[in-house]
Every structure is written in C-alpha cells, then in structure tokens.
Design a protein around this nucleic acid. Structure first.
Length: 433
RNA sequence: GUGCCUGUAGCUCAAUGGUUAGAGCGCCUGACUGUGGAUCAGGAGGUUGUGGGUUCGAGACCCAUCAGGCACCCCA
C-alpha cells in the first residue's frame, strides 16, 4: 500500500489534542501519587500464553503474532494481566500491599467506534495484596478526586458485587451455567428498559417467573443503605450474596469516612461488567454526557494474580480510559484550551540584532519561561507577530535598535492587544506577573 | 465479527449522468509607518479515498478495497 495513512482504529494525536491528553495525565498522576501510588511500566508485548486463559470470551480480540524466532507473542490487552505477571515474577521484591499506577497503550482487535479504538490508552491504579474493603473504597475515592479535579460535572460511580449478581441468579433458580446470559441481559437495563431486558432473559432460556423476580431485584434503587437493606432481605437465603452485601456495606462506610460525597456513588445491582476475572466489588463511572458507555471501570479480582503467583493475592483496581476522558472533555469544552507550550515569542528585529534576541530568549528560558524565538530575521515584525498569534503564544517581545539603546524590551500582550516598554532586567517579572 | 450510512481543497460543505468541479473559512503575497486580529486587492491549493467496471460521457451509477460514523456484539 502506497497510501499515506494510519492503521484503522489507531490514532495520531496532534499537538492540540496532546496538550489536553497531557493535562489529563498530569492531573490523574498527581492524584494517584497523593494517595501514595507508585509508577510501573511494562512492555507492550507479552508472550501470548501470559494473556491467554484470563479473559474469557474476549480472548478473540487479542492481537497475536510471531516474532523472528517463531515465538508466540501478543500485544497487551490491558495493564492488569501484565501487573499480575510482574507481581508473580518479582516475588518479595515488591512489598505488599503495593499501590501501583501505570499509563500506556493497550490493544484490542475490535470494530472502532466513537470513544473506542484498537489502540487505546489507559491509566491504571491497583492495590495489590489487600482484601480490605478500605482498599476498595480507596480506589473509588481516588477516581472521584481525579474526575472532580478534571472538572467533570455530574459523574456517578455505580457499585455492585459479583456475588450479588450471582446471588440474584441463584435465588431465581438459575445455575452458574445459565448465569452468563443473565448478566449480559441485566447489564443492558439502562439501554433496553425493563421490558427489553425481560425479553432478553426469556430468550436466554429463563422461566418467566424467574425473569420477573430478577427484574424486580435488579430495579431496586435509592440510597445505598436502603438498596443494601432491600437486597439483604431478598437474598437472605444465599450465603455468598449475604457476605457480598456485608462487604459492600463496609466499602460504603469507608467511602463516607474518606469524604467521598454521597451523590458521587450508588449501589446498582444491575451493573454486571464483562471481564471474566472480577471476583468481588465491581464498579463503573458514568456521566449523563456520555450515554453510550462508561468513563472508566474496575473492580476486585482476587484470583487473577494467583494464577501466576501460585498463592492468593487479593487485588482491586481500575482503569481510566484516557481516550474517552479526552473525547468527553473535548465535547464539553473542559480543560485548558492551550495550543502552545510557549508563553513568550521573541522576535528578531534584523539580522544584526539576532544575537541580542537569542540572548534574551536564553535568559527567559533560564528563568523558567517557555520561549519561542523567531527563525527568520528577514521577516517583518508583522509576520513574526502573526506567527506568535497563530501559535497561541500570549506575549511577543521586541528588541529593536531603540530598545537596545535604552536597555529596554517591548512586551506585547497579544491577547489584550496592549504593549509596554519595560527595563531589560524586569522582563522576567513582567511575564510572570 | 454482522448490518446500515458516509468519503469532493487544510476545515465545513455545494455541483440534474453532460464544458475547464465551486463557495465560505483558513493559508500565502501586498496595501501598512518598527506591530498579529479588522478592512481592501491579488494568489496558491483537487488524479472527487483507492482500484476496477457500466456509459458517447462518471464526483454522481455498479463491484471491490481502504477509512470514518451509527446500530448490534462487547468494552476503557
């Protein structure tokens, strides 16, 4: 193919997009480190068998290939399985509990759509080696802080537990085998409504009475305590579900104690989530501004790492979908509208004064001011101002013969359209002020 | 992976199967004094996503392919 083109479902991020993405990354990193999380980076490529057998149905989406030596390799599907590999591989070198964050691309061979790509970036935070409900709560508290700091309006985290869903299926007379289709049907509640889900359930082979029972349970809404109380009553006969509800109660108590506002989370028995490795609490964060999917999701997976390590390592974590956060923020006009990394543009008045301008630029940079300098001494000031303006730089500086003679610099605020002459030694202060 | 829709200038879009495919915005040059935006005058920019086919004639119709969007599926 001679065509100049990028791969389907994989995007180039031009400077304006990158500046917003970096802002998102900076905010989330700051929040994660505020909670004491530590960075980890792993390769994009893993041995195929590392990824296989952990993802259930989704395994067909893994990109696989052979290297020059005939080894079966795969592009990572997420950053959770690589984390499990690392924990198993380095043993006591990582002290548990371990709070880890990781940022990078993952790959899934899906049909691309809005907010969904074949190469996509996730920011993962996980707490490895703790089964405490405080760990679950901390993950949710962290994401709430991060989204609030990014300026997201009206987001809510829906909480559920794998064994609550399991209990609903069991109490309705279904075996674990039939439960898969039930989960998928339940998960579509917001999209299909009660009648639609009922039809799906019947299609999955659920008896009408059982379907009605499931629907009744799944539709329980209200304050977390009230929802939990109602579910406790309905699922009293199921020991695992009862334990799960106690677990959710402890997590919610933790959230309150950590200062997470009550309007930021709800208990939603209809939340299912697809990834096969979740074992405990599951959650996803939604916003009315992104109706077709979640901003991020996660949960507790107590057995995945054990598959590698040979010992139980309870873990809870989440993945921020950076591409989605970016798309939503762009649509809502959130975040900085920066188009340049530079704050100042130093013009060059003439070939003879090139040295003076470069010297000024060097001083500004030494003083911590991001500075762009003209590359064309032959260009008129008008053209240079235009370049500065187009780049979105706020200040243009002029150092002509008059300024040199008076040891001054003209500082022009391109946004305000005003300019003034300041003594050379005050330029840094003028730009910072 | 399945179905539907779309692809024309850097961007947003025009053009009944019929001359040399147009407009707005943007871009470049100049009017402009040592100065961006505003105004005016010029200018550049297209193998109509790509490859086949039908036709006297295709941007338009057909097939394939690539890319994007929507609905499934699933998910970040």
């Amino acid at each position: 193919m001679s065509k100049v083109q990028n791969i389907k479902g994989m995007r180039d991020h031009l400077p304006q997009a990158m500046l917003l993405r970096q802002h998102i990354l900076t905010v989330i990193t700051r929040v994660a480190e505020r909670y004491g999380f530590e960075p980890l980076q792993t390769p994009v490529v893993e041995y195929a068998e590392v990824l296989e057998g952990k993802l259930g149905d989704e395994e067909k989406l893994i990109y696989r290939f052979e290297d020059h030596g005939g080894r079966r390799l795969a592009l990572r599907y997420d950053q959770t399985v690589p984390l499990a590999r690392v924990v198993a591989q380095y043993g006591a070198a990582v002290a548990l509990p371990w709070r880890r964050y990781a940022y990078g691309p993952s790959y899934r061979g899906e049909r691309p759509a809005r907010g969904r790509y074949r190469e996509f970036y996730q920011f993962d935070v996980d707490i490895v080696g703790s089964g405490s409900p405080l760990a679950d709560a901390e993950i949710v508290a962290l994401l709430t802080d991060a989204l609030a700091e990014l300026g997201f309006p009206g987001f809510t985290t829906l909480l559920n537990h794998r064994q609550v869903i399991g209990g609903i299926a069991r109490v309705s007379g279904l075996d674990e085998e039939a439960a898969g289709g039930v989960y998928r049907a339940i998960d579509k509640f917001d999209k299909l409504g009660a009648d639609g889900v009922r039809q799906e359930l019947l299609r999955a082979g659920v008896q009408p009475a059982a379907a009605d029972h499931i629907l009744a349970l799944v539709q329980i809404e209200g304050e977390p305590d009230a929802v939990l109380a109602a579910l406790t009553e309905q699922l009293a006969g199921d020991a695992r579900a009862s334990a799960a509800l106690d677990n959710l109660r402890a997590i919610i108590a933790g959230l309150a104690a950590m200062g997470v506002p009550a309007e930021r989370f709800r208990v939603a028995p209809r939340l299912a989530r697809g990834l096969a490795y979740y074992t405990g609490m599951v959650f996803e964060t939604i916003t009315p501004h992104w109706p077709e999917g979640s901003l991020l999701g996660g949960g507790r997976y107590d057995e995945l790492i054990g598959q590698f390590a040979g010992r139980p390592v309870p873990t809870v974590g989440l993945a921020f979908g950076i591409d989605r956060l970016h798309d939503v923020m762009e649509e809502l006009g959130l975040g900085p509208r920066t188009t340049s990394t530079a704050m100042a543009y130093v013009t060059i008045f003439s070939a003879e004064l090139t040295g003076a301008s470069l010297e000024l630029a060097r001083e500004l940079r030494a003083g911590g001011v991001n500075t762009l300098v003209s590359l064309d001494p032959a260009a008129g000031l008008g053209k240079q101002f235009k370049e500065a303006d187009r780049k979105g730089v706020r200040y243009a500086l002029v150092l002509g013969p008059d300024e040199v003679a008076r040891n001054e610099v003209v500082v022009k605020d391109l946004r305000a359209g005003e300019q003034r002459s300041v003594p050379r030694e005050d330029v840094l202060a003028a730009l910072r002020g």
